[in-house]
Nucleic acid binder design. Structure first.
Length: 486
DNA sequence: AAAAAAC
């Protein structure tokens, strides 16, 4: 396997293990990148490439197809963006196209937020070049996107659905696209994007360079790679499904109905100022965010039933520090790059063990240390077993130190009262003190039927979706079988 | 069991 050898030439085994640490031996100026690109890197203070960048940049520059196994936080985006920009600068568009700016590189991502973020990076890396880039995704007005496409872009970043919409409207042509990137390909398969991907790939020239990145190497991913990569070089930066060793993982055993208070307790007792809390459901995320806000913690929810405007506002507020707690569904589990997130909390253990790896991958970015805290209840035993198997280590459920859900307090206090102990302390309800306000009775609000206070657009859509669930998506394996060509 | 993505 020449790919493997090539990688080992540049990377030492220790760098393989530490994954995100920049290599001190290699510098960005070693790759022969254009001065305009190096200037952009200098602007951002980047001197040394991360291992995946050091491995990917020379291979992409050679024009080879790449199958990359890498999670976000490894510097993957720059790993493909920089050599793509270099390629586009180097090889002028020789075709006699009427369009002055045909799309020459197409980058597809599974979520809108990720598309937006990749676009920001590409714009930053190409700002000193004449190359133009833009991003298109759903949930927002099409008109500005159409204008940008009509004006012409060399690099287009997109989510599949909206891109196909633009193709149908004939606002974009992919007939001259030389480079295709599938970012988070495993996620795209999970989300049922395979038919859309196939449609898009059919619009591209046969002769092109294709790059595919995936956090995992499932059989489906391998099959997808076989169908549209040609003699790819494999780049593997970390063992897939490995969790970074700079992330401390803890599991706290909590009663189901004490989970929201456990989150407030964790946020307060640890003084967390930047934390993502993952919920398995959209409604659960909205409710938890409201609960935290009631407790005076600046929180906001982000999930697929929020309008795109709300999603972007929440993410932006979180990045600016206006929001301390971002309560998210798995829309934020992958791809989002929020600098040096010190902590993530799993309000629910994810149903899918791989999602656990992706979620906790939001912390401990770029070599920094991080905490991954998960709340564990009795019904999570099976999910935990799957997770432990995948990450190849055990996570013993611990007691949450200093957290006294009301029910526990009552159980402990009763015998003392029967013994006739007279307390000089004020009644519990009047006591102030650290942490969540003590209540007489637990209010399992999040187990009750959902009653939106002021139904927003997003809330209304939530209810509609529950009333009329969307049709089941076809099995990925079956669709892959239909791809043929092997 | 859920979530995500085009109108």
């Amino acid at each position: 396997m020449p790919s493997r050898r090539r990688f080992k030439e540049t990377m030492s085994d220790t760098q393989l293990a530490t994954e995100q640490k920049p290599s001190t031996a290699v510098r960005f100026d070693d790759f022969g990148l254009a001065p305009a690109i190096l200037q952009a890197l200098t602007d951002q203070g980047y001197i040394h490439p991360t291992p995946i960048q050091a491995a990917a940049i020379p291979i992409v520059l050679q024009g080879r197809d790449v199958m990359g196994a890498a999670q976000t936080g490894t510097g993957k985006t720059a790993g493909f963006s920089l050599p793509i920009i270099q390629q586009l600068l180097q090889h002028a568009n020789t075709s006699a196209s009427p369009a002055r700016h045909p799309v020459r590189a197409l980058i597809l991502t599974p979520t809108r937020e990720l598309a937006d973020q990749v676009a920001d990076n590409v714009a930053a890396y190409s700002r000193h070049t004449p190359l133009r880039s833009t991003v298109v995704f759903g949930g927002v007005d099409m008109a500005p996107q159409t204008t940008a496409l009509r004006n012409g872009v060399e690099i287009l970043i997109a989510t599949p659905g909206r891109l196909l919409d633009h193709v149908q409207q004939k606002t974009v042509s992919l007939a001259q696209t030389q480079i295709l990137v599938l970012d988070e390909a495993d996620r795209m398969l999970d989300m049922g994007f395979l038919p859309d991907l196939q449609r898009i790939i059919n619009l591209l020239p046969q002769k092109r360079q294709s790059l595919m990145f995936s956090a995992t190497f499932s059989p489906e991913i391998k099959k997808l790679a076989n169908t549209f990569l040609q003699n790819p070089t494999t780049i593997e930066v970390a063992r897939s499904n490995a969790t970074a060793d700079n992330v401390t993982q803890v599991l706290y055993k909590v009663d189901e109905d004490a989970k929201p208070d456990a989150v407030s307790h964790l946020v307060r007792s640890r003084g967390l100022k930047q934390v993502i809390v993952f919920s398995n459901t959209k409604i659960g995320a909205s409710r938890l965010a409201r609960h935290l806000e009631k407790e005076g913690i600046k929180a906001s929810a982000i999930h697929g039933d929020k309008s795109q405007l709300e999603r972007m506002a929440a993410l932006d507020a979180f990045k600016q520090g206006g929001i301390e707690v971002l309560v998210a569904t798995d829309v934020a589990a992958r791809g989002l790059d929020i600098a040096e997130l010190p902590c993530v909390i799993n309000f629910d253990l994810p149903y899918n063990a791989e999602d656990y790896v992706h979620r906790i991958g939001r912390t401990g970015r770029a070599g920094a240390s991080g905490d991954a805290i998960s709340l564990y209840t009795d019904k999570d035993a099976r999910f935990l077993a799957d997770i432990q198997k995948l990450i190849k280590r055990t996570l013993p459920p611990l007691e949450l130190e200093g957290f006294n859900p009301v029910r526990e307090v009552e159980r402990e206090r009763r015998p003392r009262r029967e013994e006739g102990a007279v307390s000089s302390r004020p009644a519990r309800s009047d006591r102030g003190g650290y942490g969540a306000p003590r209540r007489e009775k637990i209010d399992p609000w999040f187990l009750k039927p959902y009653e939106p206070q002021e139904p927003s657009d997003a809330d209304r859509r939530e209810e509609e979706e529950r009333a009329a669930p969307t049709a089941k998506k076809p099995k990925v394996a079956a669709l892959l079988g239909g791809l043929g060509k092997r």
